[in-house]
Every structure is written in structure tokens, then in C-alpha cells.
Amino acid sequence: MAVSKDMEILIVDDYATMRRIMKNLLVQLGFKNVSEATDGGDAINKLRIKAAGLVISDWNMEPMTGLQLLKEIRADAKLKEVPFIMVTAESKTDNVVAAKAAGVNNYIVKPFNAETLKTKMQSVIGAFD
């Protein structure tokens, strides 16, 4: 299935600079519809209003961590199918295992470039150029 560059992507990060970096990378990859959420609760609200084709979320947030957000999404009847990529600065095995168990589609460690992001995204949503 070809991936449309018009798909909705939601970035979740409580750090504005990081959201901008992520958005820049996605725009660089050609995606036009990128929205942002500033924390887990905001992300849930936004997803309920408008469905997304992919969620890319930071792990390290307060009060709801990226992992908790993932669990809430997977537990929600309407949202549970949405692909989810977790971003983190730590690559501890425990964390990866916990995220896998919670149903993460892929895992990406900071810092990364557009190419790495592309590879990870393709493994989740399918090929695009």
C-alpha cells in the first residue's frame, strides 16, 4: 500500500524545540499534515477530534509519560489501531521491552537524522520516497 504524504501525523513532545526539530524532519520527508500535541492528555484529545495515521511521541514527559500514552491509546477502542513510534534518549533494554509489551510499533533513539526517521517510519507505515 502506498503511503500518502497527505497522511495526518501527530507529534507529541512537551519540549517545543524538539517538536520543531521533529516537524522539520517530517516536512523534509515530504509530509504536509503534521500536528503537534504538548503532552499525553493533549494528544488523546487531539486524536479523538481528528484521527491520525501515525503518532510519534517522546517517552520522557510529565505527567503522562509516552509509555502511559501508548497504553491509553491501545486500551481505547477507537484509537487502538494507530501506529505508534516512541522517541527517547535512552536505549535501555528494559525500556524497549516495556514499550514492546505495550504495543509500540517502533522505537527511535535520539539524536537521529531524517534518513533514520524515514527507515523507522517505513517499517511501520510502509514504503514511501
Partner: peptide, 18 residues
């Protein structure tokens, strides 16, 4: 402690991109 950790962690995490 959690909050301080997160603040410093985020600064570190972003530096790599910049």
C-alpha cells in the same frame, strides 16, 4: 528529582540534533 532529571535529560537529548 524526576522533574530535574527530565529537564536536564531533554536538554541533552536536543543537543544531539543541533
Amino acid at each position: 528529582i524526576g522533574r530535574i532529571f527530565r529537564l536536564v535529560h531533554t536538554v541533552k537529548g536536543t543537543c544531539g540534533f543541533l
